[in-house]
Design a binder for these strands. Structure first.
Length: 280
DNA sequence: CACACAACCTGTCAGC
DNA sequence: TGCTGACAGGTTGTGT
């Protein structure tokens, strides 16, 4: 479930149950995730108190009282569940379980194991390989079209791929890039260096808006992925183009028997959904 | 340096 | 029912 809004939803769910709790135990059932789970995770985290939760792009951050931070990424298929019952019945692909002193278990399930769990000194976070080259957070008030354009102006790749590049802008994934480009009326095929200031301004507005709406709706729930509290997100109901190949886009009056409706093409090996008529 | 493409690993679904 | 192939929310390594 994990683009920026989904990770933000997970963060908010975990805040409710983890703040000021002491970590009593961590179980790692598989260490071979995208990055090996460090062998010192347990010894560094157990006994510490969770002081705050954070998010950087699609990474969840758990800040501990001993000045360590747990870094958690959900990859493509990762989910985090909150369990208050004991004992927790573990399922296939439940790789990491964090238990608090008040009997809550946080269970990380990830079939494809593209996610990761790591820990580091909090002060060294920004210099970590995950973050050192990462672009800015689009939801920061200070994020604007000039910042986006400064990264686009020298690149020839299609804007769709530019927006997926975490060094250009942090936290967007396939769904929200497709949706933001649609709302902006910009073709996913347009080269980054052909995006005008006006288009960049529109894009930034729409990126912020689509992310805010998605967070408000609890993220997008695709397949059977759920939020940590077991509830599903609702933003998938607001997707205008993503996953809607052949359908008429909401703002079109065209005859889809002639136009074929929303197009699906492949860019960088991934599906792009867009309306040829409204995105130029 | 920018970019294209394959790879990582598993599950699901459509089509035969 | 079973098999095969395409595809899936992300990121990184390799080669040009």
């Amino acid at each position: 479930m994990p683009e920026l809004p989904e990770v933000e939803t997970v963060k908010r769910g975990l805040e409710k149950v983890l703040l000021n709790k002491k970590i009593e135990n961590i179980k790692v059932r598989r260490r071979d995730l995208r990055v090996q789970v460090p062998v010192n995770l347990e010894s560094d985290a157990v006994g510490a108190v969770i002081q705050s939760l954070g998010r950087r792009a699609k990474y969840l951050l758990i800040n501990l009282s001993n000045n360590k931070t747990i870094i958690w990424h959900l990859g493509m298929s990762g989910r985090i569940g909150i369990h208050s019952e004991k004992p927790v019945e573990l399922l296939k692909h439940d790789h990491v379980i964090l238990e608090t002193d008040d009997g809550i278990s946080i269970v990380y399930n990830d079939a494809r194991r593209f996610g990761l769990v790591d820990i580091c000194d909090s002060e060294k976070l920004a210099s970590l390989k995950y973050f050192s080259a990462m672009g800015e957070e689009p939801l920061e008030d200070s994020y604007d079209a000039k910042k986006l354009l400064s990264h686009l102006k020298d690149r020839k790749v299609p804007i769709k791929l530019g927006l997926l590049n975490q060094e250009i802008i942090a936290g967007l994934g396939n769904i929200y890039v497709c949706e933001a480009l649609y709302r902006s009326g910009i073709s996913p095929l347009k080269a980054c260096n052909e995006i005008s200031l006006k288009e960049a301004e529109k894009l930034v507005i729409e990126i912020k808006e689509v992310l805010r709406e998605a967070i408000e709706a609890g993220g997008s729930t695709l397949k059977d992925h759920k939020r940590p509290d077991g509830e599903i997100g609702y933003f998938q109901n607001s997707h205008k183009v993503y996953g809607k190949e052949g359908q008429r886009c909401p703002n079109c009056t065209c005859d889809i028997s002639k136009t074929g409706g929303i197009k699906r093409i492949t860019q960088g090996g991934r599906s792009t959904f867009y309306c040829e008529k409204l995105q130029k």
